[in-house]
Simulated scan of single mutants.
Amino acid sequence: MPVQYILAFESSCDDTSVAIVDTDYNVIVNLISSQPEHLEFGGILPELASRLHLKNIVTLTKAALNASKLNLQDISAIAVSINPGLIGSLIVGLAFAKGLAWSLSLPLITVNHILSHIFANFIEHKAVEPPFLALVVSGGHTELVHFDTLTTFTVVGKTLDDAAGESFDKAAKLLGLGFPGGPAIDELAQKGNPNFIKFPRALPQKNNFNFSYSGLKTAIRTWLVNQNPETLQAELPDIAASVQQAIIDPLVHKTVLWARQHKIPYILLAGGVAANSALRQQLTTTSAKYGIKVFYPSNALCMDNAAMVGAAAIPKFLTKNYAPLSINVSSLKGTRQV
């Protein structure tokens, strides 16, 4: 089959992205428009995000086509993420994708945003084949997903409350490091001692593959209020390293344990927190002891982007698993087929 092109859209949160990928997982173009307007609020304002997506999506689409030197007649399918995410933001992407698909008589392919993060790995690691275990770590999700094939999978562990990325953000806010918190803690922790404070690790029971971070947030706040404010600044790298280690330890331990028990040769790290340097290093080192290989996307592909949406759409395109134009967005969390 000749290589064909998929035009993909991502608008689940605060980044508008348009990409064109081919059916061999090659990225022709991947454009992202971030929304710094939210920074002054310390978080994402959903209504503002929706309005900015409306403003950006047409301009980005034109720019993507110009950069790729392709036109709409060269496109074979339209792909878009439809859940989970901010409903208003998702609606903008889906409505635009539907309009293009209908007007061009092209198939519409809808994908799950979290599944897209996992498929970002195939853009740079095309040789990976199932079975594999995916560790999804983002601001709203922490999941272990066991893939038997590219289209059949089971969520074998998930967070019961806060996600790992959310914990980074909340800890950073408590430490006065701003938003988003993950990169700030990662950078600071590289100069600190991860054993400075022994924060709790939740759900240590044998063969429990779920995660919990709400207790860690409480433990961090309780510890901080009992410290001398004058000395906290000097200890900030050690505190950041200790917080980071408390978040990472359960992720590494439970992921490697499941892979060992089920003789899975590959682990795919995915999501925004997949860019964390300590998580990458520790998961890779621990897995290597048991002959398990770890893959993760480059930092740019860990963030929300449309290239990963296009990558997740490829198996559906090849099997002609198209979506009806009546499909709608959903806030349902987790990795799933849609």
Rank of each mutant, 00 (worst) to 15 (best):
S11L: 08
S12N: 08
C13M: 09
I20H: 02
D22H: 09
D22L: 08
Y25K: 05
N26A: 12
N26T: 11
V29A: 09
I32D: 07
S33D: 10
S34L: 07
Q35D: 03
E40W: 06
F41Y: 15
G43N: 01
I44G: 09
L45E: 07
L48I: 15
A49S: 14
H53P: 12
T59P: 00
N66E: 15
A67F: 00
A67K: 15
S68R: 09
N71A: 10
Q73V: 05
D74P: 01
I78K: 07
I78V: 14
A79F: 05
S81G: 14
L86M: 10
I87C: 03
G93L: 05
A97S: 15
G99F: 07
L100P: 00
W102I: 12
I109N: 09
F122Y: 15
H125S: 09
K126C: 01
E129A: 14
P130I: 08
L133W: 00
V136I: 14
G139H: 06
H141N: 13
V145A: 05
F147L: 09
T149D: 10
F153D: 05
E166C: 02
A171V: 03
G178Q: 04
P180H: 10
G181C: 10
A184F: 04
I185Q: 11
A189H: 03
N193H: 02
P194C: 08
N195H: 14
N195Y: 14
F196V: 06
K198D: 15
K198V: 12
F199D: 01
L203C: 08
N207L: 11
F209T: 03
N210D: 15
F211L: 06
F211G: 04
K217R: 11
I220F: 08
R221F: 11
R221I: 07
P229K: 03
Q233I: 09
E235Y: 07
A246C: 08
T255F: 09
T255E: 07
L257I: 11
R260V: 14
H262S: 04
K263Y: 10
K263G: 02
K263E: 14
I264Q: 02
I267G: 01
A270N: 02
V273Q: 10
A275S: 15
S277T: 12
S277V: 08
Q281H: 13
S287M: 04
A288G: 02
Y290N: 05
Y296T: 11
S298R: 14
N299D: 13
A300N: 14
L301W: 05
D304G: 04
A306P: 01
A307F: 11
K316V: 01
P324N: 15
S331E: 13
